[in-house]
Amino acid sequence: MPEEPNPMLSLWPLVPSGATDWLLERCGDGLTGFMPPAMPDAVWVLNAMYEHEHEQEPAEVSYDEYHQARLADGSTQPHIAGGIDLDAVSIATGGGLGRARHPGPGRRRLRWTDLARRTGDPVVPDGLMPSYRCFPSAKKEGSWPLSMIPPTEGSLDRETWNRLTAALTRCTPC
């Protein structure tokens, strides 16, 4: 039987292995992608974080502690993948993936600068990119407090998108 053509080859044709060596020289190892060196006008658009308007969950309880308590009382099932109990070898950080969005009533937006001022941590520590890994003083053993919803890793929420496009529109000649 003849081999069927791979439709991906028409979209992504094979190239010699050295075709991206210039990226390695300029940007580093590229294990999860390539980050070009910052340009003088480069900026980060930070994903939204939220916190309770009025403290409802104790700030000292982390997402991981809450998750472990639910595992212990049987109200949630363990996450098993390939025979490995992920709950035994990982930490529930409280962060998520995908599109950020306002979590609803009772929560207010938490600015990164406000959290930095509150914790004494830099907004983004040297050597890190903006992510859930920032603000180590706000977390307990890598897990955010239940009173906060940390930034997602992914797309911007509508509010941030609208503010970004408005700012760019103001600064862009017609």
Score class of each variant (00 low, 15 high):
69 A>C: 03
161 W>P: 00
83 G>P: 01
28 G>N: 04
149 I>T: 13
164 L>I: 09
3 E>P: 04
97 L>R: 05
59 A>Y: 02
124 V>S: 01
137 S>R: 15
55 E>D: 10
152 T>A: 13
23 L>T: 00
40 P>L: 04
24 L>C: 02
4 E>N: 03
99 R>A: 13
32 T>R: 12
13 P>I: 09
66 Y>P: 00
154 G>H: 05
138 A>M: 08
127 G>V: 01
47 N>T: 10
120 G>M: 07
126 D>F: 09
170 R>N: 03
94 G>A: 07
9 L>G: 05
38 A>K: 07
27 C>N: 13
168 L>M: 14
155 S>Q: 15
117 R>H: 10
105 P>D: 13
21 D>E: 13
128 L>R: 10
61 V>T: 10
42 A>C: 13
101 R>M: 10
5 P>F: 04
145 P>R: 02
43 V>S: 08
91 I>W: 05
171 C>R: 14
160 T>Q: 11
68 Q>H: 11
45 V>R: 01
167 A>G: 10
142 G>C: 07
84 I>W: 04
63 Y>C: 14
14 L>H: 02
17 S>D: 12
118 R>M: 10
86 L>H: 12
72 A>K: 11
105 P>F: 00
50 Y>C: 04
167 A>I: 06
30 G>M: 11
144 W>G: 05
150 P>E: 11
66 Y>R: 07
78 P>W: 03
1 M>Y: 09
31 L>I: 15
102 H>M: 02
19 A>E: 14
115 L>R: 02
16 P>E: 15
116 A>M: 04
80 I>F: 04
43 V>M: 12
149 I>C: 02
86 L>P: 07
59 A>G: 02
136 P>H: 03
110 L>N: 01
97 L>T: 01
39 M>G: 15
109 R>V: 11
160 T>V: 11
93 T>P: 01
132 Y>K: 09
15 V>F: 07
122 P>F: 07
9 L>N: 12
24 L>G: 09
113 T>R: 13
89 V>E: 06
